[in-house]
Simulated assay, not measured.
Amino acid sequence: MQAFFFVLLMFAGFVAYWLRCRHRFSYGILEIIAAVGLMIIAVFHPEAGHLSLGNGSVFGEVLSSALSFIASVYLMVRGLDNMDNDLPLSWRSRWDRLFPKPAAKPSVQSADQSAAI
């Protein structure tokens, strides 16, 4: 049964990558939903030690909470990045005000071309 779930998860990974490649904004929304779910688990876990390493130690509980926080924040950033890469034009001005980007750095190639002139 474990092999079946492993293969199923591998398939799900490929399907998710396909979705990400073709519909980044929608995939980003799914990542945001997953991140919020992980945040809820990390902050409002239903029972003590639900993600612990099995020995019920304080270290295991702290570690599992820390990993949940890190994973949820990382997933949130990935989701926002994917949404940004395929953002509908009608959202762009508000998005850029909320998440301003630094000015683009000149590329190495353009610096080389300037030096050659």
Rank of each mutant, 00 (worst) to 15 (best):
A3R: 07
F4D: 05
F4N: 06
F5N: 11
F6K: 05
V7I: 14
V7K: 06
L9H: 07
L9K: 01
F11P: 00
F11I: 15
A12P: 00
A12H: 03
F14W: 12
V15M: 09
A16L: 08
Y17G: 00
Y17L: 10
Y17R: 05
Y17Q: 09
W18N: 11
L19V: 04
L19H: 04
L19I: 02
R20I: 13
C21W: 05
R22C: 01
R22N: 10
H23D: 05
H23G: 00
H23R: 11
H23E: 07
R24W: 00
R24K: 15
R24N: 07
R24H: 05
S26Q: 07
S26L: 10
S26W: 08
Y27M: 05
I29H: 01
L30K: 00
E31S: 08
I33C: 03
A34F: 10
A34H: 03
A34P: 02
A35S: 07
G37W: 03
G37R: 01
G37D: 02
M39W: 04
M39S: 02
I40L: 08
I41Q: 06
A42V: 04
V43A: 05
F44V: 06
E47Y: 14
E47Q: 10
H50Q: 11
S52W: 10
G54V: 09
S57R: 08
V58C: 01
G60F: 12
V62F: 14
S65D: 12
A66E: 07
S68Y: 14
A71I: 12
A71F: 10
V73Y: 04
V73G: 02
V73T: 06
Y74A: 14
M76C: 11
G79M: 03
G79R: 01
G79F: 02
D81V: 12
D81Q: 12
D81S: 12
N82M: 15
N82E: 15
D84I: 03
D84S: 15
L87P: 03
S90Q: 13
S90G: 09
S90L: 14
W91S: 07
R92C: 08
S93W: 13
D96M: 12
D96N: 15
R97L: 15
R97T: 08
L98Q: 05
P100A: 05
P100L: 07
A103Y: 08
A104L: 13
K105R: 13
S107E: 04
V108S: 14
S110H: 03
A111Y: 05
A111P: 01
D112R: 14
Q113H: 04
A115S: 13
I117S: 09
I117V: 11
